[in-house]
Structure formats: structure tokens, C-alpha cells
């Protein structure tokens, strides 16, 4: 498990109003979505905007573990933050430990997504979905990252923070507008 104090030192600041460390499961996703959907400012958004926002958050939660291949020791536990900004925006950060040796592959994938136009993202998504469907694979193979980029309509903000023991803390931060 990621040492909680260490993670707090790395990422938590005065704007953080929600923090979670542990496995991301069905209950967490359900609770976190409810946390967002119960906000009064969220309810003022047009329904399609609400849907897009929830989609981005769900994919972020569900893919942070998928994109950080399992490591045995220390056992990885994902972290989720929610930060409140005065401008009416809020940030959701999801992170996990990964093997440093796999950072390059993931970073290239993210950079390729971030440099792609919406139409390219759509084509990449459909091509990847077809591959996933035809292969019978159970993994999302980068589909979630593509879905996040499409939902937020912009580049995915990410960080790789090197840790000891050949590990790196990988995180994605979504900046979500509620106005």
C-alpha cells in the first residue's frame, strides 16, 4: 500500500477537500459519483454536461489501475483527490504506483492522445475498440484514456513522480468546470 503520509506530502494541499487511499471498487465509484452528483452546482449544469463530467471521472477512477500494471511489493493502492477551486472549477486527481520501467510506454500513449485532434481521437477509439472486441480481451487497452480525453475535450494532465525501489507514482488530474 502506498504510504498515506508520503502521498499527502506529494499531492495534498489546502484546496484538497476529499481524499481517498485504497482499492478502487464498485462501492467507491458509486460513492464518488454520488458525491459529485449531489453538489448543488452540478445540478445546475445541462444534463449532457453532467453526463460528460461523470464519464470523465468514472473513466479516470476505473483506468488508473488498468494503466498501472500490477506490482507485487509494495502492494499498490490507488489514490483519489478532489480539490475545490474558487473559480467554480474542481479538480479530480487519480493516482497509482507503477513500475518505472513502464513509464515510457504510458507517457508515449498519453502524449499521442494529447497531441491528437477530436476526429483523430474518435478514429483511435473506434480502431482500438474493434481490436479489443475482436481479440476478446478483457482489458481496456488504452480505451479509457481516449474516453477521458474525449470527455474533457482537451489534453489529459498527468504526472510521473519517481519513488524509491524502481517505482513511480502516476497520476491524472482532471479540471472540471461547473459553471
Amino acid at each position: 500500500m502506498i504510504p498515506e503520509l508520503e502521498i499527502k506530502d506529494l499531492l495534498v494541499d489546502s484546496q484538497t477537500d476529499w481524499f481517498y487511499l485504497g482499492e478502487i471498487d464498485e462501492d467507491l465509484i458509486s460513492s464518488f459519483v454520488a458525491l459529485i452528483e449531489n453538489r448543488s452546482d452540478f445540478l445546475l449544469l445541462p444534463r449532457p454536461s453532467r453526463r460528460r463530467l461523470v464519464s470523465a471521472v468514472v473513466e479516470c477512477l476505473q483506468n488508473i489501475q488498468n494503466n498501472t500494471p500490477a506490482i507485487s511489493k509494495p502492494q499498490a493502492g490507488s489514490v483519489v483527490f478532489m480539490k475545490q477551486f474558487a473559480s467554480g472549477e474542481f479538480g479530480v486527481t487519480c493516482g497509482n504506483l507503477m513500475q518505472t520501467s513502464q513509464v515510457d510506454v504510458l507517457q508515449k500513449k498519453l502524449d499521442r492522445i494529447n497531441s491528437s485532434e477530436p476526429e483523430e481521437l474518435r478514429d483511435m477509439y473506434m480502431k482500438q475498440m474493434e481490436i479489443s472486441l475482436n481479440s476478446g480481451s478483457r482489458t481496456n487497452a488504452g480505451l479509457g484514456l481516449l474516453e477521458i480525453a474525449r470527455a474533457i475535450n482537451g489534453p489529459i494532465k498527468y504526472k510521473f513522480l519517481p519513488q524509491e525501489g524502481g517505482l513511480t507514482f502516476f497520476s491524472i488530474e482532471l479540471l472540471l468546470a461547473l459553471n
Binding site: 453526463r51 461523470v54 464519464s55 468514472v58 473513466e59 475498440m129 479489443s132 472486441l133 481496456n140 479509457g144
Partner: peptide, 17 residues
């Protein structure tokens, strides 16, 4: 559906196939 994640898209595509 009002929300569907990528895993659901793939599973529904499999069923439709």
C-alpha cells in the same frame, strides 16, 4: 443508457454481435 463506460461499450457490442 445515460452513462456507459468503455467496458460497457465493449460488452454491449459483444452481445449485439
Amino acid at each position: 443508457l445515460d452513462h456507459l463506460n468503455t467496458g460497457s461499450v465493449r460488452s454491449i457490442l459483444t452481445i449485439l454481435t
